[in-house]
């Protein structure tokens, strides 16, 4: 998911601290409590007007992991079939965990 297409309303752009951009479905990103607040808060913050969120504390590797998780969750939410495991490499586990808390996911 490299940065190619311009952002539409359907999508949001997430930018990691090391400059990578992830353009993902707004719906998927809204699975994060933090992002949901950010985009839907009563006061129009810069993020919600521009559709770009710059995470100064999150590295691309982790952000990618998180994006994957959102899609994974969106896919299996309310699913009745058996749900496969979501793989997280142990070396990223702790950082992913902390980011997850930050993003309220």
């Amino acid at each position: 998911m490299a940065s190619t297409t311009p952002t539409e309303n359907e999508y949001v752009t997430l930018e990691s601290s090391d400059g990578f951009q992830f353009i993902i479905h707004r719906e998927a990103a809204m699975l994060s409590g933090t992002i949901r607040n950010m985009l839907s808060s009563a006061g129009q913050f810069t993020e919600s007007t521009e559709g770009v969120i710059h995470f100064r504390d999150i590295k691309a590797v982790i952000l990618e992991k998180v994006c994957k998780y959102w899609y994974y969750k969106a896919r299996y939410l309310n699913s009745v079939t058996e749900i496969p495991h979501f793989e997280i490499e142990p070396e990223y586990a702790l950082e992913t965990l902390m980011v997850a808390d930050f993003l309220d996911t």
């Binding site: 607040n37 950010m38 006061g43 129009q44 913050f45 810069t46 993020e47 007007t49 100064r56 930050f102």
Partner: peptide, 20 residues
């Protein structure tokens, strides 16, 4: 800034991160 109703100039991520 919020009280001055100029929230649109703020970056949520930044403020949020500070609070966090």
């Amino acid at each position: 800034t919020i009280h001055e109703q100029k929230a649109y100039t703020l970056s949520y991520e930044e403020v949020y991160r500070c609070g966090y």
